[in-house]
Amino acid sequence: MNATTAAVPQTSSGISNAKLGVWLFLASEIMLFSTLFTTYIVLRLSATSWPWGWTALNVPLGTLNTAILITSSVTIVMAYARAYDRDVAGFRKWMALTLALSACFLVVKAFEYGHEFSLGIGPSTSVFYAVYFTMTGLHGLHIVGGIIVNSGLLYMSYRKDCWEDPLFLGRVEGAGLYWHFVDIVWIFLFPALYLL
């Protein structure tokens, strides 16, 4: 334990407020996405016809996005590890890389959406596309939320007092947990929508 973690205030449970808060938040997020997956399962089981994912969607682009997100999960862990060692430059580098990858994900997604819209396909086309657009759209909003939080942390790292604040590392850790969650949701979404 270095000085940074030792200064975090003592709590009754021994877990920091930020970490416990993020975990509880993720619990509610799991319930939210489970609802959508349940909807997907119910509608698919009761459907008279349901397209195979690979015939309707662009699997190579989806695979690319999966690779991008998994890589970004690695880079955000690197950013946390650099922050843990109080390596300011290293933290900024890895965090910036994470942000760049998240932006790439959104750009690829935008190309996919654009292609579908250009074919006249939209959420109202069929229940399959309704599920696809709603689930990936909500996931995209979560990516945007993650980008906002991560850029906030990157911005804060340029302020001097941030590295004196014992809570900063906890915030980075919380952001990392959230980012892993968004990543995991995609890892469920990709096969469910594109491959099955």
Partner: peptide
Amino acid sequence: LAFPPLEG
């Protein structure tokens, strides 16, 4: 735990 499903 119960509100997110309604949100969805």
